[in-house]
Structures are given as structure tokens and as C-alpha cells.
Amino acid sequence: MKNLIFAGFCLLLTVNVFAQYDPKALEILEAMSKKYKSIPAFEANFSYVLTNDVEKVNEEFKGKLTVKGDKFRMVLPEQEVINNGATIWTYLPEAKEVNIDNYDKNSDDVNPSKIYEIYKKGFKYLYLQDKTEGGVLCEEIDLVPEKKDAQYFKVKMFINKKDKNIQSWTMFDKGGNKYKYTITKFVPNAKVEDNLFTFDPKKYPGVEVIDLR
């Protein structure tokens, strides 16, 4: 489940019989991407809701994401994921262990620091409508994976119509799960030091280091 949560933040996908390379959707996505690329570093608090109507699942938690260039640090209730652009650390506080691995830039998983560019590779996109989401007027867009065997078959994005910030997105997988992420607070131009994106075992006495590289 923890891996699904992380993948859920990193992968935005959808299947729709009417999916296409919609020029209006592209225009909106390009404006959104330009907005985020102009920000040197940012912090975002988010809420996460996992639901499955058939299995009667309803889980919620809150998290925080800090991004600077290609680097990111994501804090979740049961783990922290840290990436300096080359190495990725997954720290599990309750287990007192940290897993270290090389970050594969060519993997299907998308670096959260590039979430605003995901539509540029492997997706079709379709503008649906203007719709209010969380009290904010947004542009609703579906992203559709070109690969039929993609883990997620649907991602619905809501982009703030006024400032082009990402308001929320919901991913749908083939098992009937819906993963919804909503940005509850966004801090652009955050002052972030590079050492935030490196895990220092010395600061965590007793932690077991598992090097998978």
C-alpha cells in the first residue's frame, strides 16, 4: 500500500474512449507547466483520500511535498521519500530503517518534482469543462495513457483557471481504487537548502541502512 501511495503521487493516468491530443487541454497544461517551471522551489501541503466503493475502502491522510529543481522530499504519515536527483531514500520511522537506491530517471515512475510535465510523455489529454473544485473555479482535464497496460487507467486533473496552480487530481486504477490528492496549501519561492534532499543517518540514531544500489 505504501508503494501505491508513492506511485500514486508520481503517476497521473486515465482511459477514455474519446481521449485525444486536445489543443485546448494542451494550452492549459502548457500554461500550468510554465507556471511551475518558473518557480525555483516550492512547498505544498496536500490531503490524500483512497476510496474503493466495492471493497468499501475509505482512507485519508495528509502529507507535505518540498521541491527544488529535480530534487524533492515528501513526508507521509508512515514514511519519508527523499530524492536528490540521483539517489532516493525511503525512510520508515516505525521500522527504524531507510532504504537507499539509485533513482532511475527513465523509469515509468514520474519524479514528483516534474509532476507538472507528466503530460508531455506517454499521454493523451482532453479538456472537459470549467468546474468548481473546493470552492475554486478550475479547468477539468483528463490525461490518458498511451500504453494500454498502464497501472492507472484514468487521471482527472483540476487546474485553477485563474492562476494555473494544480488544485487536485484523482487517479483511477483497474482494481476500482480512486486516489485523490488535493493541494491544501501552496508556498511558491520557498527558501530551501540543498541538504534537505539528502538523508543523513547520523541524525537518526539506531536507524538500519539498507543499501539496494
Rank of each mutant, 00 (worst) to 15 (best):
Asn3Gln: 13
Asn106His: 12
Lys71Glu: 13
Ile5Asn: 07
Gln167Ser: 15
Leu13Ala: 10
Ser33Cys: 15
Tyr103His: 03
Asn165Asp: 14
Met171Tyr: 11
Phe197Lys: 02
Ala41Asp: 11
Leu137Met: 09
Asn111Ile: 05
Leu26Gln: 12
Thr66Ile: 08
Ile159Cys: 05
Thr184Phe: 08
Pro93Glu: 07
Thr198Tyr: 06
Lys147Glu: 11
Leu92Gly: 05
Gln151Ile: 09
Trp89Arg: 08
Gly135Arg: 04
Ile141Lys: 09
Gln151Arg: 14
Leu92Trp: 13
Ser38Lys: 13
Gly134Ser: 03
Tyr125Cys: 02
Asn45His: 01
Ala190Lys: 11
Pro40Met: 08
Glu97Tyr: 05
Lys131Val: 10
Phe153Leu: 03
Lys202Val: 11
Ala190Cys: 07
Asp130Asn: 15
Ala95Ser: 07
Val98Glu: 10
Phe42Pro: 04
Val98Arg: 13
Asp70Met: 03
Phe123Ser: 09
Tyr152Ser: 08
Phe72Arg: 13
Ser33Leu: 02
Tyr181Asp: 04
Phe9Leu: 13
Glu55Lys: 15
Ser38Thr: 10
Phe6Met: 12
Leu29Tyr: 08
Asn83Pro: 01
Ala190His: 00
Ser168Leu: 04
Phe46Gly: 03
Val49Asn: 02
Pro40Val: 11
Ile210Met: 02
Pro145Cys: 08
Ile115Glu: 00
Cys138Arg: 05
Phe197Thr: 01
Val144Trp: 01
Asn195Thr: 14
Val57Ser: 01
Val67Asn: 07
Lys203Leu: 08
Phe6Glu: 13
Lys68Pro: 11
Asn111Thr: 02
Lys164Cys: 07
Leu137Gln: 09
Met32Val: 01
Glu78Val: 08
Lys24Ala: 07
Glu30Pro: 02
Leu65Trp: 00
Glu208Leu: 09
Ala7Asn: 15
Met1His: 10
Met157Asn: 06
Glu94His: 00
Gly176Trp: 04
Leu92Thr: 06
Asp200Thr: 12
Val136Gln: 01
Lys156Glu: 15
Asn45Thr: 15
Gly85His: 04
Asn177Gly: 02
Lys161Ile: 03
Gln129Thr: 14
Asn3Asp: 08
Glu55Met: 10
Val57Gly: 01
Asp109Gly: 06
Asp108Tyr: 07
Pro23Asp: 10
Asp109Tyr: 11
Lys156His: 14
Tyr48Met: 14
Tyr103Asn: 08
Tyr152Glu: 07
Tyr125Phe: 15
Leu65Gly: 05
